[in-house]
Simulated assay, not measured.
Amino acid sequence: MSINLKGFTVLITGGSSGMGFEMAKELLSHGATVVIGARGGPKLDNAYEKLAKEGYDVYAVPLDVRDEESVTNAATWFNEHFNHLDMLINNAGIGTGMESNNPDHQFYDIPVTSFKAIVETNFIGYFLVSRAFVPMMVKNGGGRVVNVSTSTSTMTRRGMIPYGPSRAAAETMSTILSEELHDLGIMVNVICPGGFTETGMTTEAMREFFHQNNLPILTPDVMNKTILFLASPKAEGLTGEKIIGKEFDEWLKSRNISFKD
């Protein structure tokens, strides 16, 4: 194990499945203490049990990123159990309502309830969680925030309302936060997989479309090496970046950075 994250504490939202679960497992396997946050229920319980059985230093906390009270309660719980937070990963997201491959679909066909749910999760949720947890980093003199986003082409592609705009808003907020928090020792970066990825948001219709058109489907561990790098000493001082998981090795090469997971 080349990267030793012993004593490094992480909170990841949407950590009970998909890319969030895989990133949590990667960090745990390198010695980090990881708290997975997700809406309470069997899914969160099962994810925690799977990781705990491996002997990892893992915790679980009910956290609905759309609910301010739930976020506040999770932050209170965290403060009662830990004295520092090294990394916050805003990963929880939904895509329900992005009706995509229907050429007759128009933005005005999207139910308002679906539009609000996506924006509240993918954008406002990032704000609420950061608002609750970043002050812990400020108090301790530093930390790392990683916001999960999507490819720029996805943000602006036909059929991507409101998913694309919700991600674009979160990404713009990340850029602003990277500037505002820089002098406080807090790094803010954005990561995205770099293509269609098998997650809890994937529907059978989406899989069929990609298979029929011979398009690749990325696995949910696509950002594992990226998140490990951002947690490592190698990433100290790095802020305001957007890193694509699928292209991470090329990104390292372009920066002349040597990194082995």
Rank of each mutant, 00 (worst) to 15 (best):
D109C: 05
G93P: 06
T96L: 12
F107Y: 13
E179G: 13
V146W: 01
H105K: 12
I176F: 13
S174Q: 05
G93Q: 07
M173S: 02
N140F: 03
Y163M: 09
M160N: 11
S174Y: 07
P111G: 06
T156A: 08
V138D: 02
K116S: 07
G143K: 05
E99N: 15
S178G: 04
G159V: 06
G125D: 02
I110W: 04
I176T: 14
V148H: 01
G159F: 07
N147S: 11
T152N: 07
Y108M: 11
F133S: 08
K116I: 12
L128H: 04
A170I: 04
V134M: 13
G97D: 09
G159S: 07
M98N: 11
T121E: 05
S149C: 08
T175L: 14
P111L: 09
T156R: 12
A132F: 06
T150P: 01
N147I: 13
V134E: 10
T96G: 10
T156M: 11
T172R: 12
I124Q: 03
G125C: 04
S174H: 04
V129R: 02
N147W: 03
S178V: 07
F115S: 02
S130N: 13
R157P: 00
S151T: 14
M98P: 00
S100K: 06
V138A: 12
P111E: 13
P103W: 09
A92L: 06
F115K: 01
V134N: 03
G141Q: 10
N147G: 03
P162A: 14
D109M: 14
A169Y: 02
S130T: 14
E120V: 02
R167P: 00
L128I: 09
E120W: 00
G143Q: 03
T156N: 09
E180P: 02
L177M: 15
E179Q: 14
G141M: 10
E180A: 11
A132I: 06
V148M: 12
T150A: 15
G143R: 07
V145A: 01
T113S: 15
G93F: 04
H105Y: 15
E171Y: 06
R167W: 01
R144H: 13
N102D: 15
T172S: 14
M137F: 09
A168P: 03
V145S: 02
V129T: 15
I176S: 14
M160G: 08
T96V: 14
N147Q: 10
R131L: 00
N122E: 06
A170M: 10
N140K: 15
V129A: 06
I124S: 02
Y163N: 07
P111A: 04
Y163C: 09
N91W: 08
F115M: 12
V112C: 06
A169G: 11
V134C: 02
N140V: 06
T172M: 13
V145G: 02
K116P: 00
A170T: 05
R167I: 06
M155D: 12
Y126P: 00
E99S: 14
